[in-house]
Design a protein around this nucleic acid. Structure first.
Lengths: 361, 361
DNA sequence: CAGGTCGATTAAAACGTGTCAATGCCTTGC
DNA sequence: GCAAGGCATTGACACGTTTTAATCGACCTG
């Protein structure tokens, strides 16, 4: 068998060294070890039930054959898969990335894989994603829903896939678990900060008004102004951006500044750090800057907020913990027989940096 | 049956309205429509093979029973699942997020779900993730490997899961498809820019040296200096950061500036925008700034790069297209019988902003 | 030594789907 | 009127795993 290999004219494309081997199943392992498939399964899942000697024999066979178990068969039998879904509004937003890290880490500890779905704030994509999770018979889901109603989530639960709501505080606890940061408190903290600095005309740059977070943070802001004797209706103007990203923030500056220097707001509070960063940039392009011409406050405390000049004053959310906690609630629902839906609230924290300052006159 | 429901002391936790229904399978649909399961399967997968009338009957049954197909059974039968893995080095890095969006969008068009795995630049986590994909019998994988060798990827392929390498230019095309941006050209462009501005002492702030990208970009930089008659060994100093994030960049400033104003570099070229942003911050904390005291160049053109002040000069990569192209190559490998491994190279593009300026004397 | 108990192992049945060969029916051509 | 052919549908099996009830053997006890 020496000399050059004969070229075979037809047949599968040459795979040379990286030959694809025929898949080896639990039966092959059983045959090799001289036991029944059931015993192999036991070795894999409840090693304590099988005698030391046979267990070692099986383990050796597993190793020799390089067996890797097939989770399709596993899930089919179990009626559910061992992965959970994570549905976010925007993969690109670092806030969600951080949340995802929290979810993934705790899921990983429990041996669950995470399927990341991206709704891009579109109801249609969300629906498709939810359906996909149902088809996969996902063990569970962590969901940040796009629109107000939670119909999709309920449907998913009816299909046998429990879900945890993330970043939505307004849902009653008997529907599902939920984890959120107190958005009202966040808006309140930002508002009080501005009031203390003497601001009396503030513009709220909101994301899409369908998002509960945006509405509630506004409510907090208004409460803070009312608290100090101002009329919220007169003191705060609302500008709505189409999406929660920097580009939209930059574009919105035009409208924020409308009315000329006389009626121009003294401060802008944004639903989001991305928006706020866009605003900072837009101001710069117009020869203005924070906090000299205008104070700017963001929300989330994304990593970037601390990197820009001036640093962005913002309301920090425990992003990683948010994701980790959501996943932990989900695990509780999956494992604890006596699970009760829970409603977890985190407290936001104001981080003061350079983008806000006292009104000077 | 009027009056309050009797409380049953034991049993499953009360599910009230959101009753979990018994799962409905293809057989239930078949029974309801008065056909065989096989026919239902055909309606779902090859509708053209079934007569108009029966097809409608089946479709109605599907609707009435709210049937959703079980992809575990499906994958078991098919021998492979309908999801692909995406293994990234760091979910938190916006560069990867953008790549992920590209992968996800094109995968979605092809009806594939994406499982996002995060190796966090740790070989152990990468190995676990690869194993998971094998267990899932993933249809394929897009992988950005941590360490130099591609053993994991080869093993995965031997298990029947084809993989596409992302952002690794140094792999020979007969192993697997690969998509990358020409890192040498990127480093070269950055280097030439600095040379043109008169810089003769530049520090390269590198990420972990295991990463091929970091090494090749350095090579490009050195080539640019050599090109103009400078001795690379004398002109460029290398500082290695532990991770590719802003925090490490900030910490590295200390070492970058070591030697005092006399021997201080005139420019810093970073493996990464995150590092560069960290450097900008670190400079600010020491009362220094770019480009006055030091020019700074990044890599990736992350969204933030355009938002900071001064804007970060950087080497832009087509992030979204990178992900989309990788996924498209994978799809080709999955569907085209006569697939040949391909090696796709994108060209980087220098984006000049405010963080670089001519050396003044 | 018979009866009983316990631990380890096995055989067989399910999970839900896709496929393939076989069946039945209707049309067409002679 | 009958054979041939085409189309729609069916029945049965296979995919890989887990689980339950049953079996087997060994050891202990009265």
């Amino acid at each position: 068998m020496s000399g050059p290999e004969p070229t075979d004219p037809l047949g599968a494309p040459a795979l040379s060294s990286s030959e694809v081997k025929r898949p080896v199943g639990i039966n092959d392992v059983a045959a090799r070890a001289g036991v029944s498939p059931g015993t192999v399964s036991n070795v894999l899942n409840r090693p304590e039930r099988v005698a030391e000697a046979t267990r070692r024999r099986v383990e050796r066979a597993v190793e020799e054959l390089d067996y890797v178990r097939n989770s399709s068969g596993r899930s089919l039998r179990a009626g559910r898969s061992d992965s959970v879904g994570l549905l976010v509004l925007d993969v690109t937003n670092p806030f969600f990335a951080e949340v995802a890290r929290g979810v993934e880490d705790t899921a990983g500890e429990a041996g669950l894989a995470v399927v990341l779905l991206n709704s891009a704030e579109q109801a249609g994509r969300q629906r498709r994603a939810i359906r996909l999770l149902a088809e996969q018979r996902a063990a569970g889901a962590v969901v940040m829903p796009v629109d107000g109603d939670t119909a999709d989530l309920l449907w998913l639960r009816k299909q046998g896939v429990p879900g945890v709501l993330l970043d939505r505080g307004d849902v009653s606890a008997d529907i599902a678990c939920s984890v959120a940061v107190d958005n009202h408190a966040g808006g309140l903290a930002a508002g009080r900060h501005l009031v203390n600095l003497g601001h009396e005309r503030v513009t709220y740059l909101s994301g899409p008004a369908d998002l509960e977070q945006c509405r509630t943070r506004l409510a907090g802001l208004r409460a803070a102004l009312a608290e100090s004797g101002l009329d919220p209706d007169a003191a705060v103007r609302v500008v709505e951006a189409e999406q929660l990203n920097a580009e939209c923030g930059e574009k919105a500056v035009e409208e924020v500044l409308a009315g000329g220097p006389r009626k121009r707001p003294q401060a802008v509070f944004c639903s989001n750090d991305q928006l706020a960063l866009g605003v900072l940039k837009g101001l710069g392009e117009r020869g203005l800057s924070a906090p000299g011409d205008l104070s700017v406050v963001g929300y989330d405390d994304v990593a970037t907020a601390g990197l820009v000049h001036p640093g962005l004053t913002t309301v920090a959310q425990p992003k990683y913990d948010l994701g980790a906690a959501a996943m932990r609630l989900l695990l509780s629902e999956l494992n604890d027989a006596d699970h009760r839906h829970e409603r977890l609230r985190f407290a936001p924290e104001l981080v003061v940096r350079g983008s806000t300052a006292a009104v000077r006159d």
